[in-house]
């Protein structure tokens, strides 16, 4: 499992692995928003946390279909499946690798991008905290979606259609906690719910992802 994790990390960092792509996408989305809604500092700082959450979510989505598709194309996936490692663990390793290469950098990048959106000082820690709590859930849910669509040609669009509704609760609690934190309101409930979703998804979804991988490899 560790070997698979390291292999995926190496593949992602290598040129053409798409490591920087989602970060660049995140940057561009954040830069485009002021063009669309206008440069007023008040508006931007009010919608900032939500915009960064949506941006991070879309950037996560962008890199999902590479997860299994590349291994599927070059025939590595059946080989991985025949290894003694259960497919559930494979799915978990893939999700962790995905989070380390997209979720974590996105979380770290959110703070500097927040400056572009005129975020107030109090917003930053909450934004980074909620993203750190929420992006693992996005990665695991996305891994399930990628496993579901691995056999489908040009499944990228379908993958988005399937995964985006699944992202709704994570987005609501994450963005809500970031918003409330920025305004100095009570944040315990959304934070706990967000953490709960992440832990629940981490615990259960690798099994679902493993099951659909097995079906897809049959």
């Amino acid at each position: 499992m560790k070997a698979l994790l390291l292999r995926d990390l190496r593949l992602a960092v290598r040129a053409g692995g798409g490591f920087g792509l989602s970060l660049a996408f995140f940057l561009i989305v954040t830069v485009l928003v002021p063009f669309a809604v206008g440069p007023e500092a008040d508006t931007l700082s009010r919608i900032g946390p939500g915009v960064l959450w949506v941006g991070a979510l879309l950037a996560t989505l962008l890199s999902l279909d590479r997860q299994f598709a590349l291994d599927h194309e070059d025939g590595a996936l059946p080989l991985i499946a025949t290894s003694p490692l259960p497919l559930e663990a494979v799915a978990l390793a893939k999700a962790v690798a995905h989070w380390l290469t997209t979720g974590l950098p996105l979380t770290l990048a959110a703070a500097p991008l927040g400056i572009l959106l005129n975020l107030e000082g109090a917003s930053f820690p909450w934004l980074v905290l909620t993203l750190a709590l929420g992006t693992p859930a996005l990665s695991v849910i996305g891994t399930f979606g990628a496993a579901l669509t691995v056999g489908i040609k040009r499944g990228g669009l379908l993958l988005s259609l399937l995964v985006l509704p699944l992202y709704v609760p994570t987005l609501i609690f994450g963005a809500e906690a970031a918003r409330r934190g920025a305004m100095g309101l009570e944040v315990a409930t959304p934070l706990l719910m967000l953490a709960g979703i992440t832990l629940g998804a981490l615990a259960l979804l690798p099994f679902a992802a493993g099951a659909v991988l097995r079906i897809n490899l049959r």
Partner: peptide, 21 residues
């Protein structure tokens, strides 16, 4: 079928999230 199962859980979660929101 698997999507339906997973989707049901998340649909239920979304419902509560939306009420909270």
């Amino acid at each position: 079928s698997v999507l339906c199962l997973v989707g049901s859980v998340f649909a239920l979660l979304s419902r509560y999230a939306v009420y909270f929101w």
